[in-house]
């Protein structure tokens, strides 16, 4: 049983076909990188997996941990262990980061039939993790992503990833807009998350992130389907030669 099994997936956005017969398998313990030119469907894949409204699956199957993902509500997918790190994390003034994180964690525990973690214990864990990601723990008191820089938002995404302990992390261009230091911090967070029990789907434009997070497989997405797969050297080739050679 694969952690994630995508077979013949077709999906539309606003009635326009974006994913066209996409198939992919991610096993527990693996990191897969998805690369591809602009408009190839990378972010669409991430949003389809997370269940974003407006992204309509028209054909194919998506199985997550042996459950049919397509029929699940976004919150059920999250509770089942799927995490999407947003390319553009939303600012929510008036809702403190800590309150949001605790509510999310309690939802996960409730879905597993577990009791909520004590507020004190959770806050301590959140502060420690935040500090380890170079995020000032004071940010936990502020509104969700409110007034955060681009790098801080991405660190906050990784903080959520580490706190919520999902089975599959889908990172949608988490490296975009990061300086070198932030990139290394975020990569360290992903590597810290990595284990034999979970998987990562890493969507990126650039090979530079893969210098810090070594993928097991690299896939190239073009026009809504995977057109090439390989090991980390495929990413290096793409960095050196671009995507044109794939269509030759």
């Amino acid at each position: 049983m694969s952690l994630l099994a995508v077979d013949g997936l077709r999906a539309d956005v606003n009635g326009k076909p974006i994913l066209k017969n996409l198939s992919l398998r991610v096993e527990a313990g693996e990191i897969h990188a998805i690369m591809g030119p602009n408009g190839s469907g990378k972010s669409t894949l991430a949003n389809v997996l997370a269940g974003r409204p407006g992204y309509e699956v028209t054909a194919g199957q998506v199985s997550f941990n042996d459950a049919d993902l397509v029929g699940m509500a976004p919150e059920a997918r999250a509770q089942a262990g799927l995490f999407l790190a947003f390319q553009y994390p939303v600012e929510i003034p008036g809702v403190s980061n800590m309150e949001f994180l605790k509510a999310a964690w309690d939802s996960h525990l409730a879905a597993q039939g577990a009791q909520p973690e004590s507020a004190v214990g959770f806050m301590k864990r959140a502060r420690t993790l935040a500090a380890s990601l170079g995020l000032n723990p004071e940010f936990l008191k502020r509104g969700v992503n409110e007034g955060f820089s681009g790098g801080e938002k991405k660190r906050n995404e990784i903080l959520q990833l580490l706190l919520l302990e999902p089975k599959l992390a889908v990172l949608d261009e988490t490296d975009s807009g990061l300086d070198i230091d932030a990139l290394q911090t975020v990569a360290a967070g992903v590597n810290r998350f990595r284990s034999a029990d979970n998987g990562v789907l890493l969507i990126t434009h650039y090979q530079r992130l893969l210098n810090h997070i070594v993928p097991d497989q690299v896939h190239v997405l073009s026009e809504g389907r995977i057109v090439a797969s390989g090991d980390r050297h495929l990413a290096e080739k793409l960095e050196a030669e671009g995507y044109a050679w794939l269509s030759e």
Binding site: G51, P74, A78, F86, A104, H108, G143, L164
Partner: peptide
Amino acid sequence: LDAEALFYLLSRGLETWQAQRLLSLGFLRD
């Protein structure tokens, strides 16, 4: 309620009613 913010909370596992309540409260607290 802002659809993008609602999806963000749902994608973290909050139930719909929880997310709506949190966003409503956040709006007022702001």
